[in-house]
């Protein structure tokens, strides 16, 4: 058995149920943002994504709601989870939110709709199917980047 560098690093562990609850709230907020074409909901969600991406998903207002209202009522066992995968997902969400906001401000409604749709789909998949965004796209991004670097 080989020891792996990514396995050795001490990682911050958070309650695995937190990010899933946050994804549920994100799904609801983005669902309303898409259904009503409301840019301010996208801005609000963008701020939440930014906190999650830069400070960590355990510091967002959604995580606060989870800790104070939801967690005390849960009966299931605490399962620790590496903080990096949900943090990566928050960064991807932030990119989509910024794209949507930019689209709305320059009058490209289609860009707003498409960007919010992608963020909504990812949040919905995460909350409903325990979808791991980092697992699915991080390696593809790295592969695309190295391929692009080779072409240059």
């Amino acid at each position: 058995m080989t020891e792996l560098s990514i396995a050795k690093k001490p990682v911050v562990s958070i309650d695995a149920r937190g990010p899933r609850f946050s994804a549920l709230l994100t799904t609801i907020v983005l669902g309303f943002a898409l259904g009503t074409s409301n840019i301010w909901l996208a801005v609000g969600q963008g701020i939440v994504f930014a906190i999650g991406a830069f400070k960590g998903p355990q510091f967002t207002p959604y995580a606060f709601i989870f800790k104070t209202l939801i967690k005390p009522r849960l009966k299931s066992e605490f399962v620790g989870e590496d903080v990096r995968p949900p943090q990566f997902a928050q960064s991807v969400g932030l990119v989509f939110a910024l794209t949507a906001i930019a689209g709305a401000f320059i009058g490209l409604n289609l860009l707003f709709t498409v960007a919010v749709s992608f963020a909504l789909a990812a949040a919905f998949l995460n909350s409903t199917f325990n979808f791991c965004l980092g697992c699915e796209i991080y390696l593809l991004l790295l592969r695309a980047r190295s391929k692009w670097a080779n072409i240059q």
Partner: peptide
């Protein structure tokens, strides 16, 4: 495995557990 992967840790634990006690099977994480 990769850094932004939640099920990688569970997979590591599972496979390490499986190969434990089987001397002719190795688990390698890349």
């Amino acid at each position: 495995s990769s850094a932004f992967c939640t099920p990688c840790r569970a997979t590591r634990a599972l496979l390490e557990n499986i190969v434990q006690g089987i001397s002719d099977v190795a688990h390698v994480e890349v």
